[in-house]
């Protein structure tokens, strides 16, 4: 294709290039704008008079004396104790990723190495489960969790997220293990290993690229979830995303929208670095499903 790029730079070339530039503006413009605005006061970020106020920080200078202010961040993290929610998110995400990868590698390996029909039926069931909107499942949990006093705890949410994540993890790791030659574990079996020893000593050392890619998507699912965490966590155990949603209601009345803006920017930062460091894995993970059909 690179040869195609050279040569006459006609209408098509200009169209394609301007399309990319336009897209980049739309894609990152909102993030840049919100990051910049989060260091201003509300009168600037939501400026009725002139949008350029947000750039120069006119109201911010009047109210705080400086063109930039960290008031929003102070209000969100210290006054509203957003750090508790960040901590809860960290706990939920770390445990969800570790547990779902552990279950997923064992299950995915078994599915990849079993040629029986029931393995295929499990995969089909997982495909159906994957398509279920999460909120429909939540409406099934809520009443039993209340009755058995499991509602509101971080551990319950972690287990639910692990389960919701399993179908995807199983599919992803199953297709990854299919690419590891079967001769590898068979030769270990011939040498006298048990099934589990073969898995542990032969497969585990070579499985990390696939596990990391799958882990990234487990991370995103747990980190970005709103339906499950907002319904299953009590207000003292809330993670970041549902907390931001509840910010909106309370904060608007008090004129502290900037708290929510700062919280939103804070919640994006980890995602930004995730993409920065793992761009290649994310892209390969997204396309893996497409290539296999």
């Amino acid at each position: 294709m690179s040869t195609m790029a050279k040569g006459n730079y006609g209408l098509f070339g200009w169209f394609a290039t301007s399309m990319v530039v336009f897209w980049l503006l739309i894609a990152i413009g909102p993030f840049v704008w919100t990051l910049w605005g989060s260091f201003k006061v509300q009168g600037d970020f939501f400026s009725k008079a002139d949008w350029r106020n947000a750039i120069y920080g006119v109201m911010t200078t009047i109210e705080t004396g400086e063109p930039f202010t960290g008031n929003g961040y102070w209000g969100a993290w210290v006054q509203e104790e957003f750090w508790r929610n960040a901590l809860n998110t960290a706990v939920v995400v770390v445990f969800t990723v570790i547990i779902s990868l552990t279950l997923g590698t064992l299950g995915g390996y078994a599915l990849a190495r079993s040629g029986y029909r029931y393995a295929f039926i499990i995969l089909i069931a997982a495909l159906i489960f994957r398509a279920m909107p999460h909120i429909t499942l939540v409406s099934g949990y809520l009443l039993p969790f209340f009755e058995w006093n499991l509602w509101g705890r971080l551990s319950t949410t972690i287990i639910v997220l692990v389960a919701i994540n399993q179908p995807f993890t199983l599919w992803m790791l199953h297709s990854f293990f299919l690419n590891i030659p079967q001769e590898l574990d068979e030769s270990a079996l011939v040498d006298g290993c048990t099934r589990f020893q073969a898995f542990w000593h032969v497969i585990v050392p070579v499985m990390w690229p696939g596990v990391i890619t799958t882990g990234l998507f487990s991370f995103l699912l747990a980190y970005n979830d709103f339906a499950v965490t907002s319904m299953l966590l009590s207000s003292e155990n809330q993670t970041m995303v549902p907390r931001i949603a509840s910010f909106l209601g309370t904060v608007r009345e008090q004129g502290n929208v900037m708290f929510a803006v700062s919280a939103v920017v804070s919640a994006i930062v980890p995602l930004f670095f995730l993409v920065l460091f793992f761009q290649r894995q994310i892209v390969s993970g997204l396309t893996a499903g497409a290539v296999k059909g």
Binding site: L103, G104, G107, A110, A125, M132, V162
Partner: peptide, 17 residues
Amino acid sequence: FILPALAAMVLFIALPI
């Protein structure tokens, strides 16, 4: 090998449905 993953799916996806 499949038991833990299957148990999670049955308990928290199939049963809720």
